[in-house]
Design a protein around this nucleic acid. Sequence first.
DNA 1: TGTTGACCAGATGCGCAAATCTGGTCAACC
DNA 2: GGTTGACCAGATTTGCGCATCTGGTCAACA
Lengths: 238, 238
Amino acid sequence: MAGSDVAGARVGRVLDAAGELLVRWGYQRVTIDEVARHAGIGKGTVYLHFRTKDALFLAVLLRAQAGVAERAAQRAEADPEHAMPARLVRTLYLELSADPVLRAMYLSDVEILGRLAHEAADTIGELTAHRDHVLDEHLRLLREAGCLRADLTLPEMRYTFDAIATGFIVVDGFSGSHRPPPLAVEERADLLERAIAAAIQVPEPPAAELARVAPAVAQLYRSLLDHIDHDEWRPRGR
Amino acid sequence: MAGSDVAGARVGRVLDAAGELLVRWGYQRVTIDEVARHAGIGKGTVYLHFRTKDALFLAVLLRAQAGVAERAAQRAEADPEHAMPARLVRTLYLELSADPVLRAMYLSDVEILGRLAHEAADTIGELTAHRDHVLDEHLRLLREAGCLRADLTLPEMRYTFDAIATGFIVVDGFSGSHRPPPLAVEERADLLERAIAAAIQVPEPPAAELARVAPAVAQLYRSLLDHIDHDEWRPRGR
DNA sequence: TGTTGACCAGATGCGCAAATCTGGTCAACC
DNA sequence: GGTTGACCAGATTTGCGCATCTGGTCAACA
């Protein structure tokens, strides 16, 4: 080959092409041939990197998920404020709004993901379980650091968090022929942040305590990366 | 006939039967014949009260919606506390949890409503628009009465309200094979109330002001009843 | 050695006619 | 009158063979 970095870049181009076609046409209508053509390579070459069609698109989803986790970790490291759930979910909301692949994945959009919606859930079940666990741990750490309300139990906070976040993500596509959202993305993100903050956080989180646990929170999200099995989609011969 | 009250009661039984079969089998699979049998009358008799199949099930949905509005009005009249959005939505959540017809309607459950999901939206469009308006007015009244936060505009509050309420209603059916909700209905309703309260209400609403506007709020919800056109589903001859 | 695209089998989709179902009517019955 | 259920037309579903498509392979090529 012409060098592993070149090959790595090519894998990236394949994933880019696959992701773009995925959200434009939906899993069913996208052919490997088309993905290869958009990536500027031959169809067979795709199979040098990905075992099957399912594996290819699974990789698309996992790369998106990994990006979210990695960036969340970086932000928490750079600024403890971003370790607060409200701030975290604000950025996640903006990322979801900007990336159709992420949106499809988080909404389990059957129209786009097709059979992948069910299939992927099985394959990445362990990762999903771990993500659940990470969020629980995240809340636990912050609660013990006095950054979250003490009058809610952890399960209660977790449920509230999930419900509000889900609501903001889902509500735009509701009410049938609802008027186009009168609020800009940034403003909706702000509202989401404020809603989560008001619901589960204390009014003024102790900065020192927060700075103390932020690295652990970052590590928590980075640990998600370890749970992504890269051999999952590689062809048999390594 | 044997008396209009008897006929009225029979209409009720037909609607009961239709509603029950609707949520059990979905619109498509329910036949008028079956509804009539479950109501203990002949098929032709159904058509004495309802113009078409669509009209019958439309009446099912509208009766449920009318019940919600009427009860909301009554509660607001009996206790001003219930005029607060958080308390209102708490009860709505419990009603949704208990009544599959309401749930299907509010979630636009295509699986259950079938073509009715799109059809009904057109037919009851005016009612839906008015319901939207009522909620806007409700928030406006309370904000002017000093019961809602002053640091959010009305559209912002409305969006937040919709998002959180939608989230709590929708989230249970999410995350694919999510574990059965670890929280009881009542507790989830409490969390919803607290989340809405924290997001858009002031910590301690002025009781006097609230009592002053509560009747107007009640009237607002009762006005929804006027927007239900009972001739919508009646056969041509009155 | 790395890459390709022609090739194949199985899956998917299409067209169409036969069979079934069901919303709505109305003559007959109470 | 009030009520019913047999009846009918149109819509929907089913069955099925034919044609097309596409995921995945691998011999040939550069």
